[in-house]
């Protein structure tokens, strides 16, 4: 099967993730969309690795997973504490950081 199709899939997943980040208000869903974008990138890396015949892309994919795991820990902690203090997980409610 032509590896370029996987790139199309990756682009599609990334677009879905980006759109989700921009239009959803629920912090959990936004977070999931970010994960979707990260994994779309991972897919692209792996595909490039396959196409170019070296392992660089796969190594970077592992890095991304490790960073994503760390990010999940921190991000979920923030979301949980946000929910505890405001009883809401809407990202638009937390709009105090402005002039």
């Amino acid at each position: 099967m032509n590896p370029v199709n996987y790139l199309y899939l990756s682009a599609l997943l990334f677009t879905i993730g980006a759109t989700g980040v921009l239009i959803r208000r629920n912090a959990i869903v936004v977070f999931m969309c970010i994960e979707l974008m990260l994994n779309a990138c991972n897919l692209a890396f792996v595909v490039f690795s396959r196409m170019h015949g070296n392992l660089d892309g796969q190594i970077i994919a592992f890095f991304t997973m490790v960073v994503a795991a760390a990010e999940v820990v921190v991000g979920l902690a923030i979301i949980v504490s946000l929910f505890r203090s405001r009883h809401s997980a809407s990202v638009d409610d937390a709009s105090l950081m402005k002039l």
């Binding site: 980006a18 980040v21 921009l22 239009i23 208000r25 936004v30 990202v91 638009d92 937390a94 709009s95 105090l96 950081m97 402005k98 002039l99």
Partner: peptide, 14 residues
């Protein structure tokens, strides 16, 4: 531009 909405920051980032 600093309106506090994370999503609008995301738009400018994208």
């Amino acid at each position: 531009l600093q309106n506090g909405y994370a999503r609008s920051y995301a738009v400018s980032m994208f």
